[in-house]
Design a protein around this nucleic acid. Structure first.
Lengths: 141, 141
DNA sequence: TTGCAAATGAGACTCAATATCAATACGGAG
DNA sequence: CTCCGTATTGATATTGAGTCTCATTTGCAA
Protein backbone atom coordinates (compact mmCIF):
# COMPACT_ATOMS: atom_id res chain seq x y z
CA UNK A 1 0.00 0.00 0.00
CA UNK A 2 1.65 3.22 -1.06
CA UNK A 3 1.72 6.52 0.80
CA UNK A 4 -1.13 8.14 -1.07
CA UNK A 5 -3.33 5.18 -0.38
CA UNK A 6 -2.35 5.22 3.28
CA UNK A 7 -3.47 8.81 3.44
CA UNK A 8 -6.78 7.96 1.80
CA UNK A 9 -7.37 5.35 4.43
CA UNK A 10 -6.55 7.87 7.09
CA UNK A 11 -9.05 10.31 5.61
CA UNK A 12 -11.74 7.67 5.44
CA UNK A 13 -11.17 6.67 9.04
CA UNK A 14 -11.57 10.23 10.19
CA UNK A 15 -14.52 10.88 7.86
CA UNK A 16 -12.55 13.45 5.99
CA UNK A 17 -12.93 13.95 2.30
CA UNK A 18 -10.53 12.86 -0.36
CA UNK A 19 -9.94 15.92 -2.49
CA UNK A 20 -7.77 16.90 -5.40
CA UNK A 21 -5.92 19.42 -3.25
CA UNK A 22 -5.09 16.94 -0.52
CA UNK A 23 -4.01 14.44 -3.10
CA UNK A 24 -1.62 16.88 -4.71
CA UNK A 25 -0.23 17.84 -1.34
CA UNK A 26 0.54 14.26 -0.21
CA UNK A 27 2.04 13.36 -3.56
CA UNK A 28 4.21 16.44 -3.55
CA UNK A 29 5.25 15.98 0.08
CA UNK A 30 6.22 12.43 -0.73
CA UNK A 31 8.44 13.67 -3.54
CA UNK A 32 10.26 16.22 -1.39
CA UNK A 33 13.82 15.21 -0.71
CA UNK A 34 15.03 15.87 2.79
CA UNK A 35 13.61 18.61 4.95
CA UNK A 36 11.17 21.30 3.92
CA UNK A 37 8.97 23.99 5.39
CA UNK A 38 5.38 24.89 4.62
CA UNK A 39 6.26 27.57 2.09
CA UNK A 40 8.57 25.27 0.15
CA UNK A 41 5.85 22.67 0.03
CA UNK A 42 3.42 25.32 -1.14
CA UNK A 43 5.64 26.36 -4.05
CA UNK A 44 6.18 22.75 -5.00
CA UNK A 45 2.47 21.99 -5.01
CA UNK A 46 1.80 25.15 -7.02
CA UNK A 47 3.80 23.67 -9.89
CA UNK A 48 1.13 21.00 -10.25
CA UNK A 49 -1.83 23.10 -9.28
CA UNK A 50 -1.24 26.82 -9.43
CA UNK A 51 -4.57 27.46 -7.76
CA UNK A 52 -3.74 25.69 -4.50
CA UNK A 53 -3.98 28.07 -1.60
CA UNK A 54 -1.48 28.67 1.17
CA UNK A 55 -4.25 27.86 3.65
CA UNK A 56 -4.79 24.40 2.18
CA UNK A 57 -1.16 23.49 2.61
CA UNK A 58 -1.12 24.78 6.16
CA UNK A 59 -4.36 22.93 6.82
CA UNK A 60 -3.17 19.67 5.33
CA UNK A 61 0.25 19.51 6.95
CA UNK A 62 -1.13 18.68 10.41
CA UNK A 63 -3.20 15.94 8.80
CA UNK A 64 -0.10 14.44 7.23
CA UNK A 65 1.57 14.59 10.63
CA UNK A 66 -1.38 12.86 12.30
CA UNK A 67 -1.36 10.25 9.55
CA UNK A 68 2.32 9.76 10.35
CA UNK A 69 3.33 10.36 6.76
CA UNK A 70 5.20 13.50 7.65
CA UNK A 71 7.14 14.34 10.78
CA UNK A 72 7.67 17.68 12.38
CA UNK A 73 11.40 18.02 12.50
CA UNK A 74 13.35 20.85 14.09
CA UNK A 75 12.65 24.58 14.18
CA UNK A 76 14.90 26.75 12.09
CA UNK A 77 14.76 30.52 12.53
CA UNK A 78 11.28 30.24 13.92
CA UNK A 79 10.11 28.28 10.93
CA UNK A 80 8.69 24.79 11.35
CA UNK A 81 10.62 22.20 9.39
CA UNK A 82 9.02 18.98 8.20
CA UNK A 83 10.26 15.81 6.59
CA UNK A 84 8.49 13.02 4.82
CA UNK A 85 8.63 9.75 6.75
CA UNK A 86 10.62 7.51 4.45
CA UNK A 87 10.07 4.67 6.86
CA UNK A 88 13.53 5.06 8.32
CA UNK A 89 12.06 5.60 11.76
CA UNK A 90 12.85 8.02 14.51
CA UNK A 91 16.05 10.00 14.48
CA UNK A 92 17.47 13.21 15.84
CA UNK A 93 19.18 16.15 14.19
CA UNK A 94 22.35 18.13 14.09
CA UNK A 95 21.97 21.59 12.62
CA UNK A 96 24.96 23.44 11.24
CA UNK A 97 24.45 27.06 12.21
CA UNK A 98 26.81 28.14 9.42
CA UNK A 99 25.57 26.42 6.29
CA UNK A 100 22.21 25.22 7.56
CA UNK A 101 22.84 21.59 6.78
CA UNK A 102 20.78 19.11 8.73
CA UNK A 103 22.42 15.83 9.64
CA UNK A 104 20.31 12.98 10.95
CA UNK A 105 21.43 10.48 13.53
CA UNK A 106 19.97 7.90 15.79
CA UNK A 107 21.29 6.65 19.07
CA UNK A 108 19.58 3.89 21.00
CA UNK A 109 21.38 4.66 24.23
CA UNK A 110 19.86 8.13 24.25
CA UNK A 111 16.46 6.83 23.22
CA UNK A 112 16.48 4.31 26.02
CA UNK A 113 17.71 6.81 28.53
CA UNK A 114 14.94 9.26 27.68
CA UNK A 115 12.34 6.61 28.40
CA UNK A 116 13.90 5.95 31.78
CA UNK A 117 14.00 9.64 32.65
CA UNK A 118 10.36 10.15 31.69
CA UNK A 119 9.40 7.16 33.81
CA UNK A 120 11.33 8.49 36.75
CA UNK A 121 9.25 11.67 36.65
CA UNK A 122 5.99 9.86 35.98
CA UNK A 123 5.93 11.75 32.73
CA UNK A 124 4.05 10.22 29.83
CA UNK A 125 6.29 10.97 26.86
CA UNK A 126 4.51 11.35 23.56
CA UNK A 127 7.29 12.93 21.61
CA UNK A 128 10.81 14.13 21.98
CA UNK A 129 13.28 16.16 20.07
CA UNK A 130 17.02 16.32 20.38
CA UNK A 131 18.82 18.98 18.44
CA UNK A 132 22.55 19.46 18.41
CA UNK A 133 23.70 22.82 17.11
CA UNK A 134 27.16 23.74 15.96
CA UNK A 135 29.43 23.55 12.97
CA UNK A 136 29.45 20.64 10.56
CA UNK A 137 32.73 19.15 9.36
CA UNK A 138 32.67 21.29 6.19
CA UNK A 139 32.28 24.51 8.15
CA UNK A 140 34.92 23.78 10.78
CA UNK A 141 38.01 25.90 10.15
CA UNK B 1 31.29 39.33 41.24
CA UNK B 2 27.56 39.48 40.85
CA UNK B 3 25.54 39.08 37.69
CA UNK B 4 25.14 42.76 36.96
CA UNK B 5 28.84 43.28 37.24
CA UNK B 6 29.48 40.32 34.97
CA UNK B 7 27.28 41.92 32.38
CA UNK B 8 29.13 45.23 32.70
CA UNK B 9 32.36 43.40 32.04
CA UNK B 10 30.79 41.77 29.02
CA UNK B 11 29.68 45.15 27.71
CA UNK B 12 33.14 46.64 28.23
CA UNK B 13 34.79 43.74 26.43
CA UNK B 14 32.55 44.22 23.43
CA UNK B 15 32.84 48.03 23.55
CA UNK B 16 29.17 48.32 24.23
CA UNK B 17 27.80 50.99 26.48
CA UNK B 18 26.51 50.52 29.98
CA UNK B 19 23.11 52.14 30.00
CA UNK B 20 20.27 52.55 32.43
CA UNK B 21 18.03 50.47 30.21
CA UNK B 22 20.42 47.55 29.97
CA UNK B 23 21.00 47.69 33.68
CA UNK B 24 17.30 47.49 34.47
CA UNK B 25 16.91 44.62 32.06
CA UNK B 26 19.71 42.48 33.57
CA UNK B 27 18.56 43.16 37.10
CA UNK B 28 14.99 42.29 36.24
CA UNK B 29 15.99 39.18 34.31
CA UNK B 30 18.04 38.07 37.31
CA UNK B 31 15.00 38.43 39.51
CA UNK B 32 12.73 36.35 37.26
CA UNK B 33 11.89 33.01 38.78
CA UNK B 34 11.83 30.13 36.36
CA UNK B 35 11.13 30.53 32.68
CA UNK B 36 9.96 33.67 30.94
CA UNK B 37 9.44 35.08 27.48
CA UNK B 38 10.35 38.49 26.07
CA UNK B 39 6.93 40.01 26.78
CA UNK B 40 6.95 38.89 30.40
CA UNK B 41 10.39 40.38 30.86
CA UNK B 42 9.18 43.58 29.23
CA UNK B 43 6.25 43.95 31.64
CA UNK B 44 8.53 43.24 34.56
CA UNK B 45 11.06 45.86 33.49
CA UNK B 46 8.24 48.36 32.91
CA UNK B 47 7.45 48.25 36.60
CA UNK B 48 10.84 49.83 37.27
CA UNK B 49 11.04 51.96 34.17
CA UNK B 50 7.72 52.51 32.47
CA UNK B 51 9.47 54.14 29.54
CA UNK B 52 11.48 51.09 28.52
CA UNK B 53 10.65 50.07 25.00
CA UNK B 54 9.79 46.64 23.70
CA UNK B 55 12.64 47.00 21.23
CA UNK B 56 15.22 47.45 23.98
CA UNK B 57 14.20 44.25 25.67
CA UNK B 58 14.28 42.35 22.38
CA UNK B 59 17.67 43.93 21.65
CA UNK B 60 19.15 43.18 25.04
CA UNK B 61 18.03 39.57 25.35
CA UNK B 62 20.54 38.29 22.77
CA UNK B 63 23.25 40.17 24.65
CA UNK B 64 22.31 38.43 27.87
CA UNK B 65 22.44 35.14 26.02
CA UNK B 66 25.88 35.92 24.61
CA UNK B 67 27.04 36.95 28.07
CA UNK B 68 25.77 33.57 29.25
CA UNK B 69 23.59 35.15 31.91
CA UNK B 70 20.43 33.96 30.23
CA UNK B 71 19.77 30.80 28.30
CA UNK B 72 17.39 30.26 25.47
CA UNK B 73 15.22 27.46 26.64
CA UNK B 74 12.52 25.74 24.63
CA UNK B 75 9.97 27.17 22.21
CA UNK B 76 6.39 27.23 23.37
CA UNK B 77 3.63 28.03 20.87
CA UNK B 78 6.11 29.80 18.64
CA UNK B 79 7.29 31.98 21.49
CA UNK B 80 10.90 31.90 22.58
CA UNK B 81 11.29 30.99 26.25
CA UNK B 82 14.29 32.10 28.28
CA UNK B 83 15.60 31.39 31.74
CA UNK B 84 18.16 33.12 33.88
CA UNK B 85 21.28 31.03 34.43
CA UNK B 86 21.17 30.47 38.18
CA UNK B 87 24.50 28.73 37.93
CA UNK B 88 22.82 25.36 38.14
CA UNK B 89 24.38 24.44 34.84
CA UNK B 90 23.04 22.78 31.78
CA UNK B 91 19.82 20.86 31.86
CA UNK B 92 17.11 19.72 29.52
CA UNK B 93 13.35 20.08 29.58
CA UNK B 94 10.14 18.19 29.68
CA UNK B 95 7.14 20.16 28.53
CA UNK B 96 3.65 19.12 29.54
CA UNK B 97 1.48 19.77 26.52
CA UNK B 98 -1.61 19.86 28.74
CA UNK B 99 -0.79 22.30 31.54
CA UNK B 100 2.35 23.85 30.09
CA UNK B 101 4.54 22.97 33.04
CA UNK B 102 8.24 22.83 32.34
CA UNK B 103 10.26 20.26 34.25
CA UNK B 104 14.02 20.43 34.22
CA UNK B 105 16.28 17.46 34.30
CA UNK B 106 19.85 16.58 33.70
CA UNK B 107 21.36 13.32 32.64
CA UNK B 108 25.07 12.82 32.30
CA UNK B 109 24.76 9.69 30.24
CA UNK B 110 22.89 11.64 27.57
CA UNK B 111 25.30 14.55 27.80
CA UNK B 112 28.27 12.25 27.37
CA UNK B 113 26.64 10.40 24.53
CA UNK B 114 25.92 13.59 22.63
CA UNK B 115 29.57 14.54 22.75
CA UNK B 116 30.53 11.17 21.35
CA UNK B 117 27.98 11.43 18.56
CA UNK B 118 29.13 14.90 17.58
CA UNK B 119 32.73 13.70 17.51
CA UNK B 120 31.81 10.76 15.35
CA UNK B 121 30.41 13.15 12.74
CA UNK B 122 33.25 15.65 13.11
CA UNK B 123 30.61 18.07 14.25
CA UNK B 124 31.68 20.89 16.52
CA UNK B 125 28.81 21.10 19.00
CA UNK B 126 28.20 24.53 20.45
CA UNK B 127 24.81 23.92 21.90
CA UNK B 128 22.17 21.30 22.19
CA UNK B 129 18.61 21.04 23.21
CA UNK B 130 16.62 18.04 24.30
CA UNK B 131 12.94 18.46 24.75
CA UNK B 132 10.59 15.74 25.89
CA UNK B 133 6.93 16.43 25.26
CA UNK B 134 4.02 14.67 26.82
CA UNK B 135 1.87 14.68 29.93
CA UNK B 136 3.22 15.41 33.38
CA UNK B 137 2.21 13.29 36.36
CA UNK B 138 -0.58 15.73 37.30
CA UNK B 139 -2.13 15.59 33.86
CA UNK B 140 -1.98 11.84 33.40
CA UNK B 141 -5.45 10.36 33.71
C1' DT C 1 -29.12 13.42 -9.27
C1' DT C 2 -29.55 16.07 -5.47
C1' DG C 3 -28.64 18.26 -1.01
C1' DC C 4 -25.74 19.63 2.35
C1' DA C 5 -21.74 19.43 5.12
C1' DA C 6 -16.90 19.60 4.36
C1' DA C 7 -13.26 21.76 1.97
C1' DT C 8 -11.28 25.39 -0.69
C1' DG C 9 -9.18 29.98 -2.31
C1' DA C 10 -8.34 34.56 -1.48
C1' DG C 11 -7.15 37.55 1.47
C1' DA C 12 -7.72 39.68 6.12
C1' DC C 13 -5.79 39.11 10.47
C1' DT C 14 -2.67 37.88 14.54
C1' DC C 15 1.32 38.10 17.02
C1' DA C 16 6.25 37.60 17.90
C1' DA C 17 10.12 39.56 16.35
C1' DT C 18 12.85 42.93 13.53
C1' DA C 19 13.85 47.27 11.18
C1' DT C 20 13.69 52.30 10.83
C1' DC C 21 14.83 56.74 12.32
C1' DA C 22 14.88 60.98 14.82
C1' DA C 23 16.02 62.09 19.48
C1' DT C 24 18.88 61.02 23.47
C1' DA C 25 22.61 59.64 26.48
C1' DC C 26 27.12 57.48 27.17
C1' DG C 27 31.98 58.00 27.73
C1' DG C 28 36.58 59.11 25.74
C1' DA C 29 39.38 63.14 24.27
C1' DG C 30 40.73 67.25 25.57
C1' DC D 1 34.45 68.78 33.92
C1' DT D 2 32.67 69.77 29.22
C1' DC D 3 32.07 68.67 24.52
C1' DC D 4 31.24 65.79 20.75
C1' DG D 5 30.66 61.70 17.87
C1' DT D 6 28.45 57.61 18.00
C1' DA D 7 25.96 53.90 20.20
C1' DT D 8 21.55 53.40 22.08
C1' DT D 9 16.86 54.30 22.76
C1' DG D 10 11.67 54.80 22.22
C1' DA D 11 8.01 54.87 19.25
C1' DT D 12 6.23 52.92 15.65
C1' DA D 13 6.18 50.71 11.08
C1' DT D 14 7.20 46.44 8.95
C1' DT D 15 7.91 41.63 8.27
C1' DG D 16 6.70 36.95 8.04
C1' DA D 17 4.93 32.57 9.66
C1' DG D 18 0.84 30.85 10.71
C1' DT D 19 -4.34 31.20 11.51
C1' DC D 20 -8.99 32.66 10.65
C1' DT D 21 -13.07 34.09 7.86
C1' DC D 22 -16.40 33.55 4.62
C1' DA D 23 -18.46 33.18 0.20
C1' DT D 24 -18.04 29.63 -3.21
C1' DT D 25 -17.09 25.00 -4.68
C1' DT D 26 -16.73 20.07 -4.18
C1' DG D 27 -17.31 15.37 -2.47
C1' DC D 28 -20.25 11.89 -1.30
C1' DA D 29 -24.32 9.45 0.88
C1' DA D 30 -28.94 8.78 0.10
Amino acid sequence: MDKTELFNHFLAEKSLKKTQGRDNIVKTAASMKGHFDAEQLLSAVKKKDSKISRASVYRTLPLLVKAELVKESIQKDGRRIYEFSQGHGHHDHMLCVQCGEIIEFRDDVIEQRQKQIAEKYNFKMTDHRLEIRGLCSKCTP
